[in-house]
Amino acid sequence: MPSTNKHILSPNKWVELHADYLYNYTIGRVNNQDLAKDLVQDTFFAALKAKDNFQGKASERTWLISILKRKIIDHYRKINSAKGKAEVKMNFYMDGDREGEWIEERVPSSWDNEIEKDINNTELNDALEKCIGALPEKYEMVFRMKTIQQFETEEICKELEITSSNLWVIIHRARTQLRKCMEESWFKN
């Protein structure tokens, strides 16, 4: 007998049933409470507009997540365009004849050898969080997804519609900038 079990939408219950799930999903990617809240709300609005297109093949939550994913990509594109380019990015390597060599004043300084013992310090986590928060938004988003949330490279590339070489350039820039920030705020002798 063919299955006739189609999923149906219950917009009246969306917030109760799915808001926390969508919010937690979003925070793992954008790490900004207000922005995450807006993206969840926009997802519900877009879902209401598109509800006639829902065919009932996927569950209500899966369908809502697919809309949220589009919202997250749209946000990523926005920070990757005009706004992202306006953010100050620090250069660490030279251009021109000596392209790719360290800029002398940005060369890593030596750290205290005893520093590793302090790694479990909660203040270190605070310093780290501050440095991650100071990254350009695009770097922060990709760095958090890869390093803190530990998503697979392929998954991030798919979600943000970027290439893996693009991802590694972003991770490299983020980590170089973070190293410098942590050196200044925590590790310097």
């Binding site: 919010y23 925070i27 750290w111 986590n125 803190i148 949330q149 530990q150």
Partner: peptide
């Protein structure tokens, strides 16, 4: 230094990973 930083990031990840975010 990158190796030391990775340990810091992993520590941070363990702490962050446990947090369930709700509205």
């Amino acid at each position: 230094q990158n190796t030391i930083l990775t340990k810091c990031y992993n520590n941070h990840k363990d702490k962050e990973g446990r947090t369930e975010h709700c509205l």
